[in-house]
Design a protein around this nucleic acid. Sequence first.
DNA 1: TTGAAAGCGCTAACAG
DNA 2: CTGTTAGCGCTTTCAA
Lengths: 344, 344
Amino acid sequence: MLKNQRVTDKEDRSPRPVTMETVARLAGVSQVTVSRALNEPDKVSPATLARIRHAIAVTGYVPNLVAGALASKRSKLIAALIPSITNIVYSSLMQHFSQAVRASGYQLLMSETGFSQDEEQELVAKLLTRRPDAVLLTGIRHSDPCRHMLLGAGIPVVEVWDVTETPIDTCVGFSHTEAGKAVAAFVRENGYRRAANVSAGDERALRRKDAFARALIEAGFASVPEVCFEGGASIERGRLALARLVDEQAFRDGVIFCSSDLLAHGVLIEAQARGLRVPEDVAVIGFGDQVFAAHTLPPLTTVRVDRALLGERAASALLARLNGVEVPEKTIDIGFEIVRRATA
Amino acid sequence: MLKNQRVTDKEDRSPRPVTMETVARLAGVSQVTVSRALNEPDKVSPATLARIRHAIAVTGYVPNLVAGALASKRSKLIAALIPSITNIVYSSLMQHFSQAVRASGYQLLMSETGFSQDEEQELVAKLLTRRPDAVLLTGIRHSDPCRHMLLGAGIPVVEVWDVTETPIDTCVGFSHTEAGKAVAAFVRENGYRRAANVSAGDERALRRKDAFARALIEAGFASVPEVCFEGGASIERGRLALARLVDEQAFRDGVIFCSSDLLAHGVLIEAQARGLRVPEDVAVIGFGDQVFAAHTLPPLTTVRVDRALLGERAASALLARLNGVEVPEKTIDIGFEIVRRATA
DNA sequence: TTGAAAGCGCTAACAG
DNA sequence: CTGTTAGCGCTTTCAA
């Protein structure tokens, strides 16, 4: 190899990207035929298809979906907003949702709102910039500008984890008020005379708590002491919550309804550390039925929400809209279920 | 409203999207000026800037980044591949990484490989289609086609959670072999005579285990019994692991090194269920120093990996490359630290 | 400080 | 079954 040549090589360094045109030339067809070979192979003769495939392999051609999206006005992207990615309740929902939409060729553009409506609004603005084909939102409370942007975008929207009569577009989840009431009923049926609540995180947990406490007060409970945290649930906060309930609110015995299994687990640990018997001294009810719930000591009584089902339903609702299928019900209630184990 | 009019309304329904052109016309400028107003406002006179901003507000214009990306060849997208989104170790890494790159205007396109190289390869192919400006990969083991595609894309790549002398591009993490050795040293220094290992998930955990066991065997341990699970770690599996160790492998006393704090927590729970004292009968060492580790009973001794730091370093490595800064070191070792609490 | 022209790489009609 | 012609809505030169 001569030195000149090498210099020439260096100056040739305009690694012109391999486009459909490149592939087309190599295969001896026009560029659109390559496009067809990729998108509707049936409409291309086997012979040319083979030549094109060969050319693609040889060139290492990687389709450019940003060009494709611009031309077709379909990005095959779904934007998803969840409060927190480290909260397994949301991440596992996303896992199922993602899998379901991926089967139809959609990719997820996911962001965290940190339980903040303002952040959510900002993110929606940013995400719409990518022209997603659809949007998933967590919860039913959104800022007005947020709703407007979404409405203006004219794309399918699904709100999950809650239900409402007035969704932006469609909505799949369950009623937090009903969940709170159901747990209150469970508490009464099992003869508890005192109850407390521990919550963390979002507005939905607060609605469960309110329904829970209200139902119990109406049933004659003197009061329902509570501990609320800003931000996420954790075992640490569960421990702290029981400590506060016992030390500061004179909570001696009864049942504690926690807004998350993680908090409930913390309560369990703190109870043990204090020598309190579960459920004899303090009974505990969690929320979420996370995988570990069946394996705590004692096994945790909790409220199960089928996140896999939720993810799939949300996906199919969106996919139906994307395929132009008219969906009769705007909101789908997947319900919940109290799973009785040993802590209450 | 007349019926005719309403019909007309219906037929008028070609909601022509608001483009820069629309905004430009309204503001009485050319389309490129709007582009400038958005991207380099300094180069536009205050007066026209104001008119443009007003026009944007009035029309509700939402920039189209797919067109922008096509024209500029910069998508402002970073593709990230992690084994599992529900594993908090990875999701919290993503949380920090995401935050760090977002500050520079990048958005994350995240996918799960499920610990599979084949899946990873397929996802890389799919993701490159979106023309991300950079890619983050978990681990240093990738299929050859995967490496080729990435190299061919000619974009910055960062591999995290491990270190190697031969990264695809750059790499930030820590040595799993060293971690395994360090735990073995810790075990010896603390006078334990018997040790076991419980692992789940990935190849990296296995490397830690191998280094751990080898070091101990070399130090004269007769054997290091082990329990390995395919797939993710969980409390349930931790309980199961201790059960197997005790019931099937006659593990009576000693220290158990777990590949995850979650497994360690399960071991703790099972030990308690069996009336085994920790650390007197079985000592336990976790891995990851998850938030709950300090709040188990007893508090968990574990190996801390600074995921926030890792995320930030990975981000800054990528951002440096994206800004054309030559990075001297191709691989950054952020190390780890054994956190001694009460279980060992 | 502003604009005109040319394309980014693909898909969408429409022909043939 | 294949090709031609127009764009998609931006950014990038280059001029003025």
